[in-house]
Amino acid sequence: MTAIENQTSNVQPSMEPILNVENLNVWFPITGGILGRPRGWVKAVNGISFSVQPGEALGIVGESGCGKTTAGRAILRLLPRGSAHISGHVYFEGQDLYALKSRELRAIRRHAQIIFQDPIGSLNPRMTVGAMITEPLLVHKIITRQKVRAHVAELLKRVGFDADAAYRYPHEFSGGQRQRIGIARALAVNPRLIVCDEPVSALDVSIQAQVLNLLADLRRELGLSYVFIAHNLAVVEHFSDRVAVMYLGKIVELGPAHSVVSHPSHPYTQALLSAVPLPIPDRTTGRTVLQGEVPNPANPPSGCPFHPRCPLATAKCRIEMPPIEIKRGDIAHTAACWNVE
């Protein structure tokens, strides 16, 4: 059985997607002058669309500034009100999150949780682990106070702690343990979707594997769906069924994880893959080192955002943004490039 069959075994494609993002835009204003009027926009997320099936893990990969974190926050409507101009639709289980009133939104939040990159900054240092896990249970009125203790103990056990960890404070734990506390807190409200924003990039390699395995186990046991955001392609490929590659606010390639990695269509994906240093000491094979840097998102290039660094760029690329479309006859695999059939 190949990895891809193995990983997609608990995805039910016939069902309605748990998350459906349609043409999502998040533009941050660049303000200036005394009146603080916007002088321009940073299009952090610029018209992205994707869906996540129940039980599926969708990976979003890209370099810093590509908009992956902003996209992760926007799909849970976590960006502070008024901080950005947001348009497009995010349907969670069929309901448009941006059309909901705050009370309705709170009810839905229960089913969609987030895990952050920084396991130190995302836990309140003055609350015990138990209190932190209890808080969402009481906010969402999931459980009565009498039953809280047993429930917390069960959650802690699930992520590999003894029940007495509930009485300790975050500083008493290591980075990997804190990340597991973050996972327990997210799980407390029985979510169906978890957005993981760089969940292992702050951890040491030997601890990364433990946390990734835990997330994979939870997915299998609880039927969770994930949006898995990371910059490390190997980690994203390992964890996800499908992968979206982002560059300057746009999805440039989207397809089954193993297909994106073994047959990348977009020149950016190819460059990204080529840049990953492999743990094999063989210096005979050269790599194509991508020249230049990611352009300033406040002043993006015309046409295809990748054209200034692209080895294939033609005159057309400088003028017109290519649509994201099926490449190489694989209906699951799409990319946005004029020069790839």
Partner: peptide
């Protein structure tokens, strides 16, 4: 250390871990 790093196009689903911590 060599075994617990996810690698591109690696087929097995579960990562090998080093149990415990430093």
């Amino acid at each position: 250390l060599l075994a617990c790093v996810p690698r591109l196009s690696q087929t097995n689903q579960r990562l090998t871990t080093i149990p415990g911590m430093v």
